[in-house]
Simulated scan of single mutants.
Amino acid sequence: MSDASLVERSADGDAQAFGVLIRRYGPLMRAYAARILGHGDGEADDAVQEAALQAWQRIDRVEDPDRVRSWLFRIAANKALDRLRRRHPHLDLEAVPDRADERPVDEVVVTRMQVDALARVVQNLPDAQRAVWVLREIGGASYAEVADQTGLTATAVRGLLARARQAVVTQMEGWR
């Protein structure tokens, strides 16, 4: 019986047809999962069981029944990758050294002071100037996007942005 026929019958609730698919591709799915996980302690078998359960629940969503093998392999790979992720929990971000810590301390201090000074300068800009400056310089929005988000005309945005940039340059002059 073809894969397409088995998928159609499985989608109609035929557990025996689905069983044929799993018997047909299960060993290959296990080998595939084992390659991802490395050989050992039955994790590949567990991943394939989870994949088979998910496949049964979603068999009616197969877009191309002739490609059910690829679809099953993708599910098995995802289940194996989930197991790999659980094996290697993510590091606590507090435990990850700050890249800035690799620079000389005085350079780090100066950079942080510059950032703090810029934050104060931007905070002290008039509201409209601060809004357009942040949207354009930090957010990378185009003039049209800034105008749309603020309800201003593009000409008004350009004027406010020019004044905001001038204020920032003037007040940050000492940091050059």
Rank of each mutant, 00 (worst) to 15 (best):
R112E: 15
V132T: 14
Q129S: 06
H88A: 13
L81F: 12
H88L: 12
G140S: 01
R120F: 00
R74G: 11
L125I: 08
S10V: 00
G140R: 06
Q171V: 08
V134M: 13
G42F: 05
D148H: 13
V62Y: 12
A164K: 09
T155V: 12
G42K: 09
E63P: 02
G42L: 06
M1H: 03
F73H: 11
D148T: 07
S10M: 00
D60C: 02
Y25I: 05
V7Q: 02
D46G: 12
A167H: 06
G151R: 10
R69T: 03
R176I: 02
R87H: 11
L37D: 04
V62P: 07
H90Y: 02
A95D: 15
Y143K: 01
A52H: 02
E107K: 08
L37T: 10
S142Q: 01
A4C: 00
V108G: 08
S142L: 08
P65D: 08
D64W: 05
R165A: 10
A15N: 01
V108D: 06
E137G: 03
E8C: 03
P104I: 02
V168A: 11
E63Y: 02
V109W: 02
V20D: 11
R112S: 04
A33Q: 10
E50I: 01
V68L: 10
M113Y: 05
P97E: 15
A44N: 10
R24I: 02
A119D: 12
K79N: 04
L53D: 01
I75P: 01
R176F: 12
V110K: 14
L91T: 10
R130C: 11
W71A: 08
N78E: 11
A51L: 05
A167P: 00
L21V: 04
V122Q: 12
V146Y: 03
S142V: 07
Y32I: 00
S10D: 00
Q114T: 07
P89V: 03
A11C: 05
G26E: 07
R69N: 11
R67Y: 01
I59D: 03
A156W: 06
A34E: 15
E94S: 14
L161S: 08
I36F: 03
G26I: 03
I22P: 02
A156Q: 13
D64V: 11
V146H: 04
R158P: 00
Y25K: 07
M113N: 11
L72S: 02
S70H: 11
A33W: 09
H39W: 08
Q171A: 14
G19L: 09
A95T: 15
W71F: 09
V134I: 14
A77R: 15
E94C: 04
R24S: 10
G19D: 11
A147C: 04
E137P: 00
Q166R: 15
Q171W: 00
L161P: 01
R24Q: 14
A4W: 02
Q54L: 10
R85I: 01
R85T: 12
W133V: 07
R35L: 04
D12F: 01
R112F: 04
P27C: 10
A15Y: 05
L152Y: 13
Q129A: 09
E137M: 13
V68E: 07
A141M: 06
R165D: 09
Q166W: 01
W56A: 15
Y25D: 06
D12M: 09
L53N: 04
D12P: 00
D116L: 12
L81G: 01
R83L: 15
